Amino acid sequence: MHAPAFWWRDPGAAAALLRPAAALYGAIAASRLGGQGARAARPVICVGNPTLGGAGKTPTAIALSGLLAGMGEEPVFLSRGYGGRLQGPHVVDAGRDTSAEVGDEPLLLARSAPTVVARDRPAGAALAASLGSVVVMDDGFQNPSLSKDLSLLVIDAAVGLGNGLVFPAGPLRAPLMPQLARTGALVLIGAGRAGDALAARAGLPVLRARLEPDARALDGLGDLLAFAGIGRPQKFADTLQSLGRPAKRFVAFPDHHRYSAADAARLLDQAAAERLALVTTEKDLVRLRGDAALARLADACRALPVRLAFEAVETVRGLLAAALQRAKR
Rank of each mutant, 00 (worst) to 15 (best):
A61H: 06
D196V: 04
N143Q: 15
A237Q: 06
G290E: 10
D97L: 09
D10A: 12
R210K: 12
R173V: 04
A110W: 07
G103F: 09
L285F: 03
P114W: 09
A61W: 01
A197Y: 02
G290H: 09
D97T: 10
L161D: 12
F77S: 14
A123N: 15
A158I: 11
V187W: 03
A293Y: 03
L18N: 04
L180A: 11
T183S: 05
D238H: 07
S242Y: 00
A174C: 06
A277F: 01
P175A: 03
L108C: 06
E101C: 11
R245M: 03
L161F: 09
L131H: 14
G140M: 14
A158D: 13
R329K: 15
R42E: 09
Y25S: 03
A174L: 07
L24F: 01
L319I: 09
M177P: 07
A158P: 11
A126Q: 15
G140Q: 15
L268D: 01
R201E: 08
A323T: 14
L211K: 03
K328L: 15
L153M: 15
E73M: 06
E314Q: 14
A27Y: 01
D255L: 05
V76E: 09
P11S: 10
A191I: 06
G54F: 00
V91N: 04
A217K: 02
R275S: 08
Q87N: 14
K328Q: 15
V47R: 06
D104G: 10
D299S: 14
L320R: 13
L278T: 11
A321K: 12
A14W: 05
A298V: 13
E314K: 11
P254Q: 03
L294A: 13
L109I: 11
G229W: 07
D10N: 09
P122I: 15
H256L: 08
L152D: 10
R208A: 04
R182E: 07
R307M: 04
D156C: 09
V251G: 02
A41I: 05
R201G: 02
P122R: 14
L243Y: 07
R216L: 06
L207P: 04
G290I: 11
